[in-house]
Design a protein around this nucleic acid. Structure first.
Ligand SMILES: [Zn+2]
Ligand SMILES: [Zn+2]
Ligand SMILES: [Zn+2]
Ligand SMILES: [Zn+2]
Lengths: 162, 162
DNA sequence: TTTATCACCGTTATAATGTTACATTTTTTA
DNA sequence: TAAAAAATGTAACATTATAACGGTGATAAA
């Protein structure tokens, strides 16, 4: 197990597949290789920055960081990398925050559920078959052909409840 | 039942509590009265414009419309009204679209689920106890105190499936 | 009645987020 | 190698949202 300090999101260790930046990068390399897509230096760097932040991070915060080491970076630099990472399931967009987090289990089958702590800003991704299937069932009953879903929950994490 | 043309979202009539602008306005007056809050002319007008659009509508589209009749309107005019309408459950924000729809059943107990048709852009709000409760159950098991949730699903509506 | 307070709105400016378009470079394919 | 495709550089622009401050009108003390 990687060092604890690398993963301060300790409120649900049991769900964690990827515990640190290194794990995430290794997994990303593996997935991109399997898919035959290119994890270019910029894409990799953005992924690392997202994982290093340990919190949802916005596109312009990523831009500020990558500019330090990559002077020519501009908004498209970041958004292109994000599009790629999201398309291949390595990163999720948090709609309610306009921010991004690393997917904790790239390739997961069920729709992720994002839990957002309103106090500390920390985020946990849960993948639950039952919730996804319940939604799929209900929408199918309406004749709606489901292609994707986004579930975001706000509240207070165990740590912040004291 | 109000005229059909007022409600082109015909793919799930059974779920509709409010079928037209007039219903929505009447219900809004009732709710604001009960709560002792003021449904001012601007707030009412924004609510009507949202309901009249029959689709999710963005803040700046609302601004364009209200400017026609209210020359001094500016972004804060619209955002303040939206904040009020959302706070009192009369309107929902669709995170993935940065757009707004009228709540079909103001005061509903369970979290609404927004179904978005990728073809026609139409939206349906479903309120389902089971889904909300399933999410609440799972998050509680993690020690997470749930305060709100946002569920948005994308897919194809029955009409667009042909 | 005067004064204070409050919610609401007008107004201007600006911040934050995201996209388009086109040129250039790099990588892959034939 | 030559052509095609993918990725990136670059500048400008578009969209969405908020901050700040002052004015107005209703309501509530003093
Ligand atoms: Zn995920
Ligand atoms: Zn917390
Ligand atoms: Zn609703
Ligand atoms: Zn449709």
């Amino acid at each position: 197990m990687p060092p604890e300090k690398d993963n301060p999101r300790a409120w649900d260790k049991s769900h964690y597949h990827l515990a640190c930046v290194e794990d995430a990068v290794a997994k990303a390399h593996q997935i991109c290789s399997e898919k035959g897509v290119r994890l270019t230096p910029t894409r990799l760097r953005i992924l690392e920055l997202i994982w290093r932040s340990h919190k949802p991070i916005g596109a312009y915060a990523l831009l500020d960081e990558i500019k330090l080491e990559h002077k020519s970076a501009a908004p498209p630099t970041v958004y292109r990398a994000l599009d790629f990472l999201i398309e291949h399931g390595l990163v999720h967009r948090i709609q309610s925050l306009n921010a991004f987090v690393g997917c904790n289990d790239p390739g997961h089958v069920y729709s992720g559920i994002i839990l957002i702590c309103n106090d500390c800003g920390d985020v946990l991704e849960m993948d639950d078959a039952k919730i996804s299937e319940t939604i799929a069932l209900y929408t199918n009953n309406l004749g709606f052909q489901l292609s994707s879903q986004s579930i975001e929950a706000n509240g207070t994490c165990p740590g912040c409840r004291g």
